[in-house]
Amino acid sequence: MGIAAGFAAIFGSMLGLGGGVLLVPLLTLFFGVDPKVAVGASAVCVVTNSVVGSSVHMRSGFTNIRLAMLLQTTTALGAISGAAIAISANPNVINFVLGIVLIYSAFSMLSQRRIPVPNAPPDAPDPLALRGSYRDQASRRIVEYVPERIRLGLAISGGSGVLSGMLGIGGGVIQVPLMNLLMRIPVKAAAGTSSFMVGMTAVATAAVFYSQDKLDPRVVVPCMIGIFLGAQIGSQITRRLPTHRLIIIFVLVLAYLGISLVLKAIGIGLPGQD
């Protein structure tokens, strides 16, 4: 279970997804963990992945803290309502919704792969002082950006918060494509900022599951230990590799897990799964 969590953390931290989007299906499909317990454990693991991974992302300059604080206002409110829905929801409904989210994310990542890093003048208007910059080790250049479409970003962040609270994922599956495709933020900065945000979002979710006595240390502790290692590895990979090389593998993993969960929700189990 710890190895599975470490695997989820490597990919999660690498692409700013928190890891929950991979961990919940891994726990439910391959370890037979009850979906609600898996969602609770995942929320703690998302926080862990965020804390460990962000400490590396921040040093790399990938985390835009001002942007994170701005978007987090709507994301956190969405997470509270999502967590309340999850406590009383049918496990099959959770599996189905998560499956659809994964398939959507796969298509988003695939389309994101083909979009080049946008170029623009350095004196672009920046009324909210959200300009960010980082040194890209892969291309050995300084990348500067100013986020666009802030209002739309705030609205969609609220929606990703609802999904996060409901499913125990960090919401990064929505946030990263949102930031990159709509707000014109480079992928590494989107991943670093999302990685920071998903931890704050998952705090509220984890607290809800703690109060409901749905955090099982037999599941949480092995996963946390795996994530301590996996998140650091994933963050270091982000620094050194062009993200588009990793997206194809990630899309395949997301699509497989998404389809598996949708099939499980409608009563069709794949061979080798509980």
Binding site: I142, V143, V146, R184
Partner: peptide, 14 residues
Amino acid sequence: MNTRATTSDEDENE
């Protein structure tokens, strides 16, 4: 739509 990100070799802005 204006594209507002830029890539340069300049040092980080103060």
